[in-house]
């Protein structure tokens, strides 16, 4: 538990800043909704007639006239991208930073097995992501209450659940990469998250690219699909969980063998 506590303390500032930034943008979006609703009919027409762009964001199938339709695109992008960046960054640096900042010699010359280091760091990562998502969910629900909208609880929970899973998946993959890296981890984390995001946009554009939805966690976070079906796509989710597990397994495999620079 010592390493978990230590990691949480070390990561506290970053977690607070990311959570505050995402929460701020999320809440602004929600508070803007009452004003936007009046114009939504027009905007909706506009949004649904932008061809490929419309399809890329799934806006051809969403009703902007409802809060949840609006929320799933606007807030989905904020929570989706923001959460993905945070989870990737946290995951990709949590093991690699020890060598980058030369603290590995300190940590790993204590009588703690490498496997325990990996386990405790993984636990700290999961705790941070979970804490962030709980705070964001609570603030989101509260904001919806504050603007006096009916609470589409099931849909909001499904959306947030999907993004939570997305963050865990990206964190898991990045955690695996982290065990192999010594430097430059930040760029790889951001790059991976951004690449996943764009893969989903491409997958939305054409049916030939639809298989990409299996690769990117944004595939199962598509607001239009979730609201239409009322559930997450099991196939995409399971593939995602598989990727995350592979990342975590790779982290254990590599870190117990690794020469510490």
């Amino acid at each position: 538990m010592t390493i978990v506590k230590h990691e949480l303390r070390q990561g506290k500032t970053a977690l607070l800043i990311w959570t505050a930034a995402i929460a701020f943008l999320l809440m602004i979006c929600i508070f803007l909704y009452p004003e936007m609703r009046g114009e939504m009919d027009e905007v909706g027409d506009l949004f649904s007639s932008m061809g490929g762009f419309t399809a890329a964001f799934g806006m051809d199938r969403l009703n902007f006239g409802t809060l949840i339709g609006y929320y799933s695109v606007e807030c989905g992008n904020i929570l989706g991208l923001g959460g993905a960046f945070f989870a990737s960054l946290a995951g990709v640096s949590i093991l690699a930073k020890e060598e980058k900042e030369k603290t590995a010699e300190f940590l790993l010359t204590h009588p703690v097995s490498r496997a325990r280091v990996v386990t405790e760091k993984l636990a700290a990562l999961a705790i941070q992501i979970t804490a962030m998502n709980l705070i964001l969910l609570a603030l989101s629900l509260l904001s919806i209450q504050l603007i006096g909208e009916r609470l589409p609880l099931k849909e909001v929970l499904l959306l947030h659940g999907a993004f939570y899973l997305l963050q865990l998946e990206l964190a898991g993959i990045c955690f695996g990469l982290s065990a192999f890296l010594r430097r430059g981890s930040v760029g790889i984390g951001i790059g991976l998250a951004a690449m996943m995001y764009f893969l989903n946009l491409i997958a939305n554009l054409t049916d030939q690219a639809r298989f990409l939805k299996y690769l990117t966690p944004f595939g199962y976070c598509e607001g239009a699909d979730i609201l239409e079906k009322g559930r997450l796509n099991t196939g995409f989710c399971l593939t995602g969980i598989l990727f995350a597990c592979a990342g975590i397994a790779a982290a254990y495999w590599q870190y117990v063998r690794k020469d510490i620079a």
């Binding site: 230590h6 900042e101 603290t103 010699e105 300190f106 010359t109 204590h110 009588p111 703690v112």
Partner: peptide
């Protein structure tokens, strides 16, 4: 781990969190 419990190590270059 068993060894490290009985060892005190001072690295040449010291870095902390």
């Amino acid at each position: 781990a068993e060894i490290l419990a009985r060892v005190g190590y001072l690295p040449a270059e010291v870095s902390f969190y």
